[in-house]
């Protein structure tokens, strides 16, 4: 009986310890975001978002860079969404009993997800810029990112499709509907929230990327005229201003603010959306 108070003390001690760990992490998060948000907010204006950069980015705004970023994201999604949804649909609806095939495809996607982004950068540089001759361009950057976000998109959509109850497929089949129609009219619409979440996660991941883009979409700050032009995205701009342009720190702060707030909004949307979708499913 004498052991009891001791174990209770230990329990309280551990509780204190792990709770302060949590507090420490929240503190770190606040320190980082507060620094970026506070420093970046000063001098931020509509003008900064729309005008062209001047003096290697020390002055002016980030208008063309926003356009480049959007274009790179657009290409990335244009390729990765059809490919990802198609693959997820095959894995979920058509793979049947081919366990070995399914397992190895999943393994290959796991491996793809584990490859460091700098390696994607090298791959994109060799294949898209050089072998396919797209040069340093928005197209090369977008395609490289598409390869990178593919596993996230496939996984998210796949779980969405698997969450559609099997009796819907059975009922559709019993009514003589083709698999194509069941997929298009019943399963995909039901899994739509998952597809939206996949798109948001894909954007979040792609927009955060720097290393894969340095050697693919390049550094050019001009307003891109086509997807074959090189275009500097926001994250590359932060990197270049902070590391290579003395006196570029102020604008780097502002760009970081823009990047961070957009990502916060996108990721919050994604988690909000998937949260509501999951709770809606449970009800």
């Amino acid at each position: 009986m004498a052991k009891r108070p001791l174990s209770e003390k230990l329990d309280q001690l551990v509780g204190l310890l792990v709770r302060s760990s949590s507090a420490l992490m929240v503190g770190m998060f606040l320190v980082v975001t507060a620094a970026i948000l506070r420093n970046g907010l000063s001098g931020l204006s509509m003008e900064f978002l729309t005008t062209i950069p001047q003096d290697s980015g020390r002055g002016g705004g980030i208008g063309p860079l926003i356009v480049s970023t959007v274009l790179v994201l657009g290409i990335c999604l244009l390729v990765s969404i059809p490919l990802g949804v198609g693959t997820a649909a095959w894995l979920s609806e058509f793979s049947g009993s081919r366990q070995v095939v399914t397992k190895s495809i999943q393994l290959s996607l796991d491996l793809l997800a584990s490859i460091p982004s700098i390696v994607f950068g090298l791959f994109g540089m060799v294949v898209f810029c050089q072998k396919l001759n797209f040069g340093f361009s928005i197209l090369s950057g977008g395609l490289t990112l598409a390869c990178m976000v593919l596993p996230i998109i496939i996984r998210t959509v796949y779980f969405g499709l698997r969450a559609v109850p099997g009796d819907i497929r059975q009922a559709g089949t019993a009514l003589g509907m083709s698999q194509t129609r069941i997929l298009r009219s019943l399963i995909i619409p039901t899994a739509m929230p998952a597809i939206v979440v996949a798109i948001l996660l894909g954007i979040g991941r792609a927009m955060a990327e720097t290393a894969a883009l340095i050697f693919t979409s390049g550094y050019v700050m001009r307003m891109p005229e086509s997807v074959f032009d090189s275009g500097r995205v926001l994250s590359v701009h932060i990197y270049d201003l902070a590391m290579n342009v003395p006196g570029g720190e102020t604008n780097a702060q502002r760009t970081a603010f823009v990047l961070l707030t957009s990502l916060l909004v996108i990721n919050l949307c994604a988690s909000q959306f998937s949260g509501r979708w999951l709770t809606g499913r449970r009800a």
Binding site: P165, I168, A171, A174, G176, S178, S185, T190
Partner: peptide, 21 residues
């Protein structure tokens, strides 16, 4: 013809399965 068969032979399940439409 599978689709013809399933039109001619309808089926209703234990659990009602309305489509989410």
């Amino acid at each position: 013809d599978l689709y013809e068969i399933r039109r001619r032979v309808g089926m209703v399940f234990q659990k009602a399965v309305p489509f989410p439409l």
